[in-house]
């Protein structure tokens, strides 16, 4: 395996990688909690957006409530929310704050970054190999994107 790009903010307990396959890409994220995984996955997704279409950050936050039968599905659902927002509404979160909610759900407050055109690179986040697992330092997750 060859590392093409590493985030400067990466630490042993928190960070993300983009792992490429023949026709797709897996986001591998790690963090001390599930909420941190969602934040890292958001950063990893937004990194795919070309600089040239990144617009201003607005102050009006948007709130989301996510529910799913398990954490892997919840992470996939959130990434699919980002796919939709980037393509249909031309914005993506510049920052997210994530809180645990009842019955395993999460609340996400997103600070929007406008895009100068829709972001259509990613078709979808898939359940293919989607996993959230415990590690010695916290949690790690993988979600494959169809691009």
């Amino acid at each position: 395996m060859r590392v093409e790009r590493a985030r400067s903010s990466e630490s042993e307990t928190r960070g993300h990688e983009h792992v490429e396959h023949t026709s797709e890409m897996t986001l591998r994220v790690r963090g001390p909690s599930f909420e941190a995984l969602i934040e890292e996955a958001t950063r990893a997704f937004v990194e795919l957006v070309p600089e040239r279409i990144r617009g201003p950050i607005t102050t009006e936050a948007r709130d989301f409530r996510l529910d799913a039968p398990d954490r892997a599905a919840l992470l996939v659902d959130w990434l699919n929310e980002l796919v939709y927002l980037g393509e249909a509404e031309a914005w993506l979160p510049a920052q997210v704050d994530v809180e645990a909610a009842d019955e395993g759900g999460v609340l996400v407050r997103a600070t929007p970054m406008r895009l100068t055109e829709p972001f259509v690179l990613v078709k979808a986040a898939t359940l293919h190999g989607a996993v959230v697992r415990k590690t010695e330092r916290g949690l790690e997750a993988e979600v494959t994107l169809d691009i």
């Binding site: 395996m1 060859r2 590392v3 093409e4 790009r5 990688e17 983009h18 792992v19 490429e20 897996t26």
Partner: peptide
């Protein structure tokens, strides 16, 4: 980015 491993 990394390239993925394959199965047997």
């Amino acid at each position: 980015m990394k390239d993925a491993a394959v199965s047997p």
